[in-house]
Amino acid sequence: MKLTFTLFLFLIIITFSNAQEFKTPVDYLNYIGKETDAISRTTWKYTSAVAHSKNARRIDVTRKTLVKSIQNATKKIEALKDGYKGDVEYKDQLLAYLSISEKQINQEYEKIINMQEVAEQSYDFMEAFILARDLVNTKINEEVDKLNANQKIFATKYGIQIGEDKSELGKKMKISNEVFENHTQLFLIFFKVNFTESLLMNAIAENNLNAIQQNSNALEQYSNEGLDKLKTFKAYNNDLILVNATKKVLEFSKKEALEFSPKVVAFMMLNQKFQKTKKIMDNKSVASRSKEEVDNFNKLVNELNKEVGNYNANNNKFNSERANTINFWNVTGDTFISKHVPID
């Protein structure tokens, strides 16, 4: 499963009436608020596209539009050479924020996309990808904190009251951040067992008994660890659909480790015994084979033929259940995001 890369920008929305001339500090903040509001709206379009669209082209178009809106705002803010009557501290902090945001969204995005391409090759790679993605958000959020602090300093200096952002757009973005974070935490639990399960399947395909045992043990361990985490996991808005889907995956993975793998190992060992015995029989002439050897070999052939049917039936059963369980998690994950991330 591909994890959607998403950047979340804090919204900087200042609720003042529109004005263009800086006769008052409110006019100045209002002008800046108009520019940051445009970025906020574009940011929301990007977030909404990620949440509700499977069209990678559309998502990337909204990302580029977001970068363009930041660039446009930067040009207009840079043009305010004197800020408000020579007070440029807030303006400079805003420009620093815009610069870092553009870099993270534009340049760092490309690096993280490259990381995403190899993320599914190991749990460590996936974890590194998610950490790198979150680091982008952290850097931007740090600048937002500085910006908000400077905005308050400016407002206090000029006796302006600034309330908390209670806009609908701000509420939507806050919800989106929480929903994606909840999904990511459950995804990592899911991915750890899913990746280990893929290693187990590769070991089975290669008839590697040692690797089968190792990955089976790891699968049981990670399944138990995941189930323990779910006991205390706080689902977003008390919606347990993705928690339950994750639990279903973990319970199936544990069953694979405890029921499926031992049967696979037993069949492979029986087949190895058959191949070894057959080689011995083939190296003997018909006349030199004892009745006991022939009877034992025929008994082994009958046993193997019987177990081939059981083995195939067991494989088909678990393959079907595995596909259904993974597909159910993916669909539920998409449903969870679409359900809770607001639509425009």
Rank of each mutant, 00 (worst) to 15 (best):
K2T: 14
T4H: 13
F5R: 13
F16G: 04
S17I: 09
N18W: 13
N18L: 11
A19K: 10
P25R: 01
P25N: 01
G33E: 00
E35R: 07
D37R: 15
I39E: 01
S40Q: 05
T43G: 10
W44T: 08
V50N: 13
N55G: 03
T62L: 14
T65N: 13
K68L: 06
N72P: 05
K75N: 10
E78F: 02
A79P: 00
L80M: 02
G86N: 01
K91T: 01
Q93T: 13
L94T: 00
A96K: 10
Y97V: 00
L98Y: 01
L98M: 06
S99M: 10
K103Q: 13
Q104L: 11
I105C: 00
N106M: 09
N106Q: 14
Y109R: 06
M115E: 06
M115W: 04
Q116K: 13
E117V: 06
V118T: 12
S122Y: 03
F125M: 09
M126A: 09
R133D: 12
I140V: 05
N141D: 15
D145H: 13
K152Q: 10
I153F: 03
K157A: 02
Y158D: 00
Y158Q: 00
I160C: 00
I162N: 03
D165S: 02
M173I: 14
S176H: 08
T184C: 10
Q185S: 09
Q185R: 12
F187G: 04
L188W: 00
F191L: 03
F191N: 03
F195P: 04
E197Y: 15
S198T: 12
L200Y: 04
E206A: 14
N208L: 02
L209A: 06
I212H: 03
Q213V: 12
E220S: 15
Y222K: 01
E225S: 06
L227Y: 02
L230Q: 03
L230H: 04
L230M: 05
A235Y: 03
T246Y: 00
T246C: 04
V249Y: 03
K255Q: 11
L258M: 11
E259C: 05
E259A: 12
F267Y: 08
L270H: 06
K284N: 01
A287S: 15
R289Y: 04
S290M: 03
E293P: 03
N296L: 01
F297C: 01
L304T: 04
N305L: 06
N305Q: 08
Y311M: 13
N316Y: 06
N319D: 13
N319I: 07
S320K: 15
A323W: 10
N324E: 14
N324T: 12
N324W: 08
T325S: 03
N327A: 05
V331D: 13
T332S: 05
T332A: 01
S338I: 15
K339P: 05
K339S: 10
